[in-house]
Write a protein that binds this DNA or RNA. Structure first.
Length: 861
RNA sequence: GCGGGCGUGGCGAAAUCGGUAGACGCUAGGGACUUAAAAUCCCUCGCCGUUAGGCAUGCGGGUUCGAGUCCCGCCGCCCGCACCA
């Protein structure tokens, strides 16, 4: 029996596609365009199974849309700046640039073995000055437009590495690499004004009907719009300060203002700092609050704590009513005004605090079904709807009306205004890191911050740096930061911070439209033609950060006249993870890799060398630490890209997690070989390409032919809707049916050819190498890649006769073969005549017969 | 705590307009071929029952001629956010 030679075959077609420039994209106004993009990889070293899944899904869509006649853009690039390169530089004594470029070379080679329909001419790497120079220009335009600014802000500071850490890099209050206790430091940082688009980013979500609901909800929550009232308390005069001071607070519950029992400010509130200057006890309290980390655990277990400042504020609606002012650890400086008024009866945090410090708890909203006289709040705040009580002129109103009423009152006296508050904060983009895009500004002692003028761009990241000292190598570079002020000419210093690498990924999709353009990041014509991305595909982990930043950046570009587009990604698909069983040595408990194991004669896993018993653990995300990774290169080398691709698409729906198994990849491999044998070693000689359909077909041939067309119709829909697992099941079903045809009956050989050709075309997007090989085997000239998607004959998609279930009182008693669309009366007659049905009726009178055409008949007795 | 999702054979899953539950595959078992193995091919495979049939979609109710699907109440698992006033 001859065998399919995967290695040779796959390499052959890959080089043919490349030499013929099959996937080179060109703008063509006469054809509908389709932009397919998978989230570009970070060049970490080698591709992993997550990449294989991501790029397989993208490639199926790209090839499918191509066959459907779209002008497809399907590019690839490298998210090449970032921390791991610097860590590698330290650990492996290499340079981030060379480490990154070597990884790119390796991974490009690996991706090419997958047979992806990518336009490699458009490849970009974000660490190339040809790329990042354009974002420097964009940033300076944002600066001019007021969308970028500099301010002091608190950061996580690692005192050993002398660097800022992202929140994700702080684990239990310690630096992830050094283990040093992280300090809060105030640093001058660059910010992008994403909050300027808060409302617009929120509204835009409504237009993204081809995004997963949950991603939209996550972004909605992240933006966190609240409507309420911002108002100012008058501070009772203090002897030591100027009179007429006010304390501004924000609340979403102005209706509960008459239930107020205290005001609270954040430990980082300017007023707190002011008071602490003359109050060492308060200063100590504030320091304590700051020491307590902001880790999730710390917050969850933290007790509400406060410090009575002794200050009083005047209730805005009653000049004779005074409230104490506390510094409270649960009030965030970053949200609202950093100060609140507290109504313990209707806010759990306020209630916890009030109970601890013995402050009044007065319910002012009474649920409709409760007795106003006896309704009391003990340990659980009441946050539901109800009627206002104990609230003077608000009494009797519902919550919503009371909110409006208080808002109006405060506005009329000038004490406050109704307003909208967002949870979203501006995007801090400064990183005290080397391997990133230099921020193009200069610090001059006389002129302050001076943007680098256009004619001095780009600011090139120097490669002659050393990593022998902690901190940012850019600061240590002997000459790089020393420059002349573009404004006054005096010696000045370059900014040594680099951009957050999320900036590069915020516009790379636009760069792909004109990747070779020197003068600008992209040409207007190219983005007008290609953008937005019709189908974006990637992991759910970027649901907020990258996907929100890109939406912001696109809007900022629009503001600065770069393009006319709001949403960069019109369609989004988030794929699940690739998981694998985990293994541990039964004695030592050490993690073991799948390649360390073998099955013994009892079918149990044991260690390959020591034969020691192995415990099989949970199925978890592939990770180096748990050693449950399978190297795609090894799989592709053994079974070929098509088998790996088929496995990725089979069984699990793409949005769900997928378990990688050895038997699964074996199954994919078996199918590929079976298909190859079936076509290359057909039971009868097939009629030549293009032979006309014979007039007569055997019943079996006719039935098989119908299945062919049903499969074409079904699979087209499946691929459109990302139901790859069903598409695979369908084409397997068709192959099974074709395997049943021995070609001896009338017209069967012709149907076999039609069936084989259809299968080959249908698997084209999923298993492109095998498909090309079989296309040739079937006697065709030219590439299958250039063939259009098959069309189903509508007349063959529906059957003439249908199987109808007959139920008696809802229980299945018989199935009947009836002509399609048979009238109800006849159907009922045939059903009642059936022997099984008669037996089930047991002679009881028929009360009612429900006939659902072409589906079911239910006899009710 | 808030928000979202999901519970179907030994396993991954189909059934997405309320109409035959388990397509397709994996595993397992049996058989054929072979000196043998691999590969391949055939058969069986939700549970109980000899058959007739009965029971089955996390649990308990409800609506309906008919519920995996809709409604109400529980239980369990997963994900995101998390002192956001």
């Amino acid at each position: 029996m001859s065998r399919y030679n995967v290695k040779e075959t796959e390499a052959k077609w890959q080089s043919l596609w490349e030499s013929q420039g099959c996937f080179t994209a060109r703008e063509d106004a006469s054809r509908p365009k389709y932009y397919v993009l998978e989230m570009f990889p970070y060049p970490s070293g080698r591709i992993h199974m997550g990449h294989v899944r991501n790029y397989t899904i993208g490639d199926v869509i790209a090839r499918f849309k191509r066959a459907k006649g779209f002008n497809v853009l399907h590019p690839m690039g490298w998210d090449a700046f970032g921390l791991p390169a610097e860590n590698a530089a330290l650990e492996k004594k290499t340079h981030p640039a060379s480490w990154t470029r070597e990884n790119i070379a390796t991974m490009r080679g690996q991706l090419k073995t997958m047979g992806l329909s990518i336009d490699w001419d458009r490849e970009i790497a974000t660490c190339d000055v040809e790329y990042y120079r354009h974002e420097q220009k964009m940033f300076l335009d944002f600066l001019k437009a007021g969308l970028a600014y500099r301010k002091e802000s608190w950061v996580n500071w690692d005192p050993v590495d002398n660097t800022v850490l992202a929140n994700e890099q702080v684990i239990d209050g310690r630096g992830w690499r050094t283990g040093a206790l992280v300090e809060k430091r105030k640093l001058s940082q660059w910010f992008l004004k994403i909050t300027a688009f808060a409302d617009d980013l929120l509204k835009g979500l409504e237009t993204l009907d081809r995004w997963p609901e949950r991603v939209r909800i996550m972004q909605e929550n992240w933006i966190g719009k609240s409507t309420g009232v911002r108002f100012r308390f008058a501070l009772k005069d203090r002897a030591d300060t100027a009179p007429n001071q006010t304390l501004e607070v924000f609340t979403t519950r102005p209706d509960t203002l008459f239930g107020a029992s205290f005001a609270a400010i954040s430990p980082n509130h300017p007023l707190a700092a002011e008071l602490a200057a003359s109050n060492p006890e308060l200063a100590e309290f504030i320091a304590e609050c700051n020491r307590l980390g902001t880790s999730e655990e710390a917050i969850e277990t933290a007790e509400k704590r406060g410090f009575d400042t002794g200050l009083k504020v005047v209730h805005p609606l009653d000049p004779s009513w005074e409230l104490p002012v506390y510094v409270a650890n649960f009030v965030l400086m970053e949200y609202g005004t950093g100060a609140i008024f507290a109504c313990p009866a209707h806010d759990q945090r306020d209630l916890d605090f009030a109970r601890k410090y013995g402050l009044p708890v007065l319910p002012v909203v009474i649920p409709a079904d409760a007795d106003p006289a006896s309704f009391a709040v003990e340990t659980e705040a009441y946050t539901g709807p109800g009627v206002l009580r104990n609230s003077r002129f608000l009494d009797g109103l519902d919550v919503e009306s009371a909110k409006q009423e208080v808002g109006k009152r405060l506005e009329s006296t000038g004490q406050g205004e109704r307003t909208t508050q967002f949870r979203l904060r501006d995007w801090g983009v400064s990183r005290q890191r080397y391997w990133g895009c230099p921020i193009p500004v200069i610090h001059c002692e006389s002129c302050g911050i001076v943007p680098v003028p256009d004619d001095q761009l780009p600011v090139v990241l120097p490669e002659d740096v050393t990593f022998d000292k902690p901190g940012n190598p850019l600061s240590h570079h002997p000459s790089w930061k020393h420059t002349a002020c573009p404004s006054c000419g005096k010696p000045a210093l370059r900014e040594t911070d680099t951009f957050d690498t999320f900036i590069e990924s915020s516009w790379y999709f636009a760069r792909f439209c004109s990747p070779k353009e020197d003068s600008t990041g992209f040409t207007r014509e190219s983005v007008d033609y290609w953008l937005g991305v019709d189908q974006y595909i990637g992991g759910i982990e970027h649901a907020v950060l990258h996907l929100l930043y890109s939406r912001f950046w696109t809007r900022a570009l629009k503001t600065c006249g770069y393009l006319n587009l709001d949403e960069p990604f019109t369609g989004l698909f988030t794929q699940g993870m690739v998981n694998h069983e985990t293994y541990k040595d039964a004695d030592s408990g050490a993690w073991l890799a799948p390649t360390d194991l073998e099955k013994n004669d009892k079918g149990q896993w044991v260690h390959r060398d020591t034969k020691a018993p192995v415990n099989v653990g949970r199925v978890e995300k592939m990770s180096k630490s748990k050693k449950n990774v399978v190297d795609p290169a090894h799989i592709i080398g053994t079974y070929g890209a098509d088998a790996a691709r088929l496995f990725m698409l089979s069984d699990s729906p793409p949005e769900r997690d997928l378990e990688w198994t050895e038997s699964g990849i074996d199954g994919a491999w078996r199918y590929i070989n079976r298909l190859w044998r079936m076509v290359t070693d057909a039971p009868v000689a097939l009629p030549p390409v293009g032979a006309p359909k014979p007039d007569a077909l055997s019943a079996k041939a006719e039935a098989t032919r119908r299945l062919v067309h049903k499969t074409i119709a079904g699979m087209s829909e499946d691929l459109d809707k990302f139901r790859f697992n069903k598409a695979v099941a369908r084409v397997r079903e068709l192959s099974n049916a074709l395997g049943e045809l021995d070609g001896s009956g009338e017209g069967e050989a012709w149907v076999l050819r039609e069936g084989f050709e259809s299968v080959v075309r249908l698997i084209g997007p999923m298993m492109p190498h095998l498909a090309e090989e079989l296309w040739v085997a079937l006697g065709h000239q030219g590439l299958l890649t250039d063939q259009p998607w098959p069309e189903a004959d509508p007349a063959l998609v529906t059957e003439d006769s249908v199987k109808i279930a007959v139920q008696v009182n809802g229980k299945l008693r018989a199935t009947l073969d009836l002509p399609r669309d048979l009238d109800k009366e006849s159907a009922e007659r045939v059903a009642l005549a059936d022997a099984n049905v008669q037996r089930a009726l047991e002679g009881k009178p028929v009360r009612k017969v429900i006939v659902v055409p072409n589906r079911v008949i239910n006899v009710v007795v």
